[in-house]
Simulated scan of single mutants.
Amino acid sequence: MEVAKMANQSIKVYPVGNGDTSLISLSGNQHMMIDCKIDNDAPTNKDKFDVKKDLVANLPKDSEGRHHLDVFILTHPDNDHCAGFKDTFFCDDPANYDKDAKERNAIIIDELWFSNTLFDRFTDPLSDAAKNFKKEAKRRKDLFKNSPEKAKLPGNRIILIDFKDECKDDGFESIIVEPGTSTNIFNKVEKTDFSLFIHGPFKTPTDDSQPRNETSVIMQLRFGSANDEMAALAFFAGDADYNRFQRLLDERDDESIQWDLLLAPHHCSWTYFNMTPYEDFPEPQDSAIEFLQRQRGAGMIVASSKEIIDDDDNPPHYAAKQEYIGQIDEDDFYSTGDDPLTPLVFEAGNNGFSKKDYIAKANLVSAVSGVTEKAKTYG
């Protein structure tokens, strides 16, 4: 029987040094961004990739000619996951979109996703970028509470990744996606070929939790085909350390922690493998290796980091890279630091992901050149 071709869906990981900025392109010309580290000086700095220019070239416009992003998800409020948020996106009611916003190509986020837990349990001082994000999130929460009809409009929508039985505001339960569940509704559109399984943050921290990173939103991205709703699986976990992955192994079913493509946590830091410094204990925890072995066949791992060299930096950590490539083919490990002027693009297919060449387009969605997909060895 002939297998139906999947809609063009992809993951683009931007080269931003040690930081995360990923654009997920879905069917129906929908787009989702997970985290951002966007430098304002990129347009005039020949050594940096201009993320915002690429976004403006790829994102669709609304009926008023304003670029818009369907969904933005913040995994946690470290500066290297939200830098440039206010300068890139429009942080106000779209009704107030003015000449200045138009001139700077401010992008409207139709639906903002984040977790109250990120800020309730994140005890470190917030960067200016994190404060800007929190202010915009509060604006949308206040609007949902006080002007619910206006809060339904694109540019004002919000989804909370939290627990309904801990919700302090009446009515907010309707916009909560709970960790431990999946959803296929994004920006009011019910998808038949994409869903998210939200794993974290976990409801309660453990004694070994880090105050900065234990609240990271952890998620499995499920790209589907006509025959398989989990044809290609990607895993994003912010800066989660190996303790969070131990909890995944202990508390989640096997299907929800499988992966074909993994964004290496914390920019290829050693903390994924062990919280004890490498110099003191250069052995990975069993849970870190066990999770990596949940890859389905030929797995791909991506480090969103500066160039990985054999030095004392952490992140990225050279020994961490060696542990990763010990679990996959070395050619299937990618780092954005290898070419800091070119995004990495992975297209979802019927058999996992395939690496594609990035081709910049002025006004069209980035084209990708054909590469044979890797065959799965499962299912």
Rank of each mutant, 00 (worst) to 15 (best):
G200S: 14
N213F: 09
H199T: 08
F197P: 00
H199E: 06
V217H: 00
I218T: 03
R212C: 02
R212K: 10
S216G: 10
S216T: 12
N213Q: 03
K188W: 11
K188G: 07
I198M: 05
P201G: 03
F194E: 00
I218D: 00
R222Q: 10
P201S: 05
F202K: 02
P211F: 12
T204W: 09
P211W: 11
M219N: 05
M219D: 01
L196Y: 05
F197S: 01
I198D: 00
M219Q: 09
F194C: 03
K191F: 12
Q220S: 12
H199D: 06
V189Y: 07
P201E: 04
L196T: 01
T192P: 00
I198L: 06
D207Q: 11
Q220K: 09
R212T: 06
T206G: 11
D207R: 06
R222D: 07
I198Y: 01
P205W: 05
K203C: 10
Q220N: 11
S195T: 02
I198S: 01
Q220Y: 00
V189N: 06
D207G: 11
R222H: 06
L221C: 13
T192Q: 10
G200K: 01
F197M: 03
V189Q: 05
D207Y: 08
T206Y: 11
P211I: 14
Q210H: 14
L221Y: 07
M219K: 07
D207F: 08
Q220A: 05
S209N: 11
E214T: 13
